[in-house]
């Protein structure tokens, strides 16, 4: 294999690798929103918390983001203790890797 072909293959491999880089996904961003919510105000009502998250999501996520759609759906699940498990499943089905978020786990049942 001559050098030109090797270089060609190397650049092509680099292109593929760069497209698979470890970017922050929407579920991670949602986790950040809940981290922020936890720091901002501990005395918010659940309605105020929903507004807070919705406003952040409107700025940072597209309206059809699976992270946002999942959140809107799972907050309706009862018993509330089961919401995080559903959200975690939704994240892992979407991003196809393990996913955890301590602040969502803590706060989802109170929304």
């Amino acid at each position: 294999m001559n050098t030109t072909i090797k270089l060609l293959l190397l650049s092509f491999a680099l292109m593929i690798l760069s497209s698979c880089s470890n970017k922050m996904n929407d579920f991670d961003l949602m986790c950040d929103f809940f981290d922020t919510l936890a720091m901002e105000n501990k005395n918010m009502t659940s309605s105020q918390k929903a507004t807070f998250i919705n406003e952040l999501a409107a700025k940072k996520l597209s309206s059809d983001s699976p992270a946002l759609e999942s959140l809107k759906a799972v907050v309706g699940f009862e018993p509330a203790e089961g919401r995080y498990s559903l959200y975690k499943d939704a994240a892992e089905v979407t991003i196809k890797k393990d996913w955890e978020c301590a602040s969502i786990k803590k706060q989802l049942k109170m929304l």
Binding site: P66, E69, S70, K72, A73, G76, D89, A90, V93
Partner: peptide, 14 residues
């Protein structure tokens, strides 16, 4: 929706 069916299922239940 744009989401996987298991997510759409929860949305539709809502």
């Amino acid at each position: 929706s744009n989401s996987p069916p298991s997510i759409s299922a929860m949305t539709i239940a809502g």
